[in-house]
Design a protein around this nucleic acid. Structure first.
Lengths: 333, 333
DNA sequence: TCTATTGGTTGGAGCGCTCTAATGCTGTAG
DNA sequence: CTACAGCATTAGAGCGCTCCAACCAATAGA
């Protein structure tokens, strides 16, 4: 249970510790003979460098901390993929911690991440108060994904939710729909730009917006539909605040004997893997998630390595993915 | 961007660095007066201990490393919840890394995790070769979740896949089914106990097993169903290797004009959040995922703190969750 | 009064590494 | 044969912390 140190490798290879250090950081100023001797000794001993000692001594870190607010949501997994891709090709490692959507847990996760003194931090849709983020930003560079901020020490990466909602409305209008309701995400992150975009797009088409209170869950989507049915106010098309909500809405419609898309069209938001399942096959708005991750990592590295200090605000374009839950009113021709 | 050190706090509080260290680890042998003075100074400076320096000096770690083979799978998120719960209440932090289902990436993730010299490692359904795990196990305690091992330095936590498959078969038989096919998980982790359990249960009921090659994806489930349809060999009930596969199977059945469960019953495995969606409402086998995590963390801490050395093999009981995709042959009465 | 004892406090070594400045060693020019 | 680059190599200090042994009152026991 005891790992060899640089000293052990040095002794075995018959060189100094400093030389081993140079080899480990593959410095060019080491003779080929010594380099191979050191690598051989390291291999034989099963040596690998101690990241913490290294970072302590060099007062730098090649670690990027990532805080994922909710591990259960596959959305974040794809963002992490993008971060991972960039970090790896630039020689950085990532460590992940999770906040479980609770401010208290998230705070603790942040503290824990900070205690490793990473080079920078990427926070995915954090729910901690802005002041906590501001305080952390005094100690290291921070990038926020799927959450906006006005702190100048912080970069942000978001999708343009207004545009996404507009795309959905335009699609439905082009199919011939006139009565289109929006199942709203309430306090949920990014719900308000989506709502704004929906209202604006409806008005641009000369249509009357119908915003129905709901939430980011399938149960809430089903409830919203049942309330519409009870009020006899069912439109011909639904724009849900996200995919889960849309799936709940579809269930409730089917429970009521209505067919999707023949009787009612439904559009989701996020293009989660759920939407792509053939059984669901949901028309939805895609966010470039891996791109979020890549841009976030890139922004962080610019601060870490190039010393950039002016904030960057990325606003990415969402896109429409047409599947089988939308059709002209009255069903496909 | 420069964090205060213990030295700074000591100076400000007018005490020695060692005393600050004692306060930070809240040792009982510090006078109340000094303790408050130190805490005040720390607060004023915004000091928090440097986890790496601490772990380097103490040659111990309060960090548990967790490698998640696939962040996209919500299964692991729930296991992590369980790990997190136990770790936190025992004063340990966790850091997560992901392997993306690729042995190469996973190896790198393992290496990265190891370089932090955590107290121990929990690997969730790893795909790296057993030898790599064995080598890592020489350096620190390791617990494997959803993968078995015979290495004695390694603990394992699994569900009893044979029993799970048996539960599913028993359920279908009790509904009156006699022709029940199994869509097999192939090389996938835990596929073979499930297959064994299915075959054994069928034979115990005096029925003929029908194993159909498939995989852990919805596309594979759909393909398997289409091949059964083409061969005119469709049974009255299907036991899929997992929930994704089951959802794919259902789509293909519906595409072929068959109704679930009226014409064919389908059972999944894993009870993912997907299965619980009202739109899917899949009868499936539940694994106690959070319990997996708790037991894994507990097992690890027993090795780390209590110095246990004999391996522990947890085999948890799965349970049947009946929803709306199973009914007597010919449909519900 | 003197020695033990106790509880609080401290200096200093050292964890595994990096980094700077100094060293030894070649080979070439003077 | 000496001098001096120029390069490969190394000693030693130090990163922020913990841990141990030593220390210093203050109190207790003889």
């Amino acid at each position: 249970m005891v790992r060899p140190t640089m000293e052990d490798v040095a002794e075995r290879a018959g060189v100094s510790r400093a030389l081993v250090s140079l080899v480990m950081r593959n410095s060019p100023k080491v003779s080929e003979a010594r380099r191979t001797a050191v690598l051989k000794a390291a291999e034989e001993l099963g040596y690998s460098p101690h990241a913490m000692a290294r970072s302590l001594a060099s007062r730098t870190s090649t670690v990027l901390g990532v805080m994922v607010s909710d591990l259960h949501n596959a959305f974040f997994a794809e963002v992490v993929d993008g971060i991972d891709e960039v970090a790896r090709e630039q020689g950085f490692d990532i460590i992940i911690n999770t906040g479980g959507r609770s401010p208290a847990r998230e705070r603790r996760a942040l503290e824990s991440l900070l205690s490793f003194r990473p080079a920078g931090l990427i926070l995915l849709s954090p729910v901690v108060p802005a002041t906590a983020i501001g305080k952390a930003a005094e100690q290291l560079p921070i990038v926020l994904v799927a959450r906006s901020s006005r702190v100048s020490a912080v970069d942000t990466v978001n999708d343009d939710g207004e545009q996404g909602a507009r795309l959905a409305v335009d699609h439905l209008v082009s199919l011939g729909h006139k009565r289109i309701a929006h199942l709203d995400g309430g306090e949920g992150s990014q719900a308000s730009p989506r709502r704004r975009g929906y209202v604006a797009a409806m008005e641009a088409h000369g249509l009357v917006p119908q915003v129905v209170a709901s939430e980011y869950t399938d149960a809430a989507g089903a409830r919203a539909i049942r309330s519409l049915l009870a009020d006899d106010a069912l439109p011909t098309a639904i724009l849900s605040c996200n995919d889960f909500n849309a799936v709940g809405a579809i269930s409730a419609l089917e429970d009521a004997g209505l067919r999707v898309p023949e009787d009612v069209s439904v559009v989701g938001y996020d293009n989660t893997s759920l939407a792509a399942l053939r059984h669901v096959s949901l028309t939805t708005i895609d966010q470039p998630r891996a791109e979020f991750g890549r841009l976030a990592a890139l922004a962080l590295l610019q601060r870490v390595r190039d010393g950039r200090t002016e904030p960057v605000r990325h606003l990415l374009n969402p896109s429409l993915v047409v599947r089988n839950t939308t059709a002209p009113p009255g069903g496909p021709r």
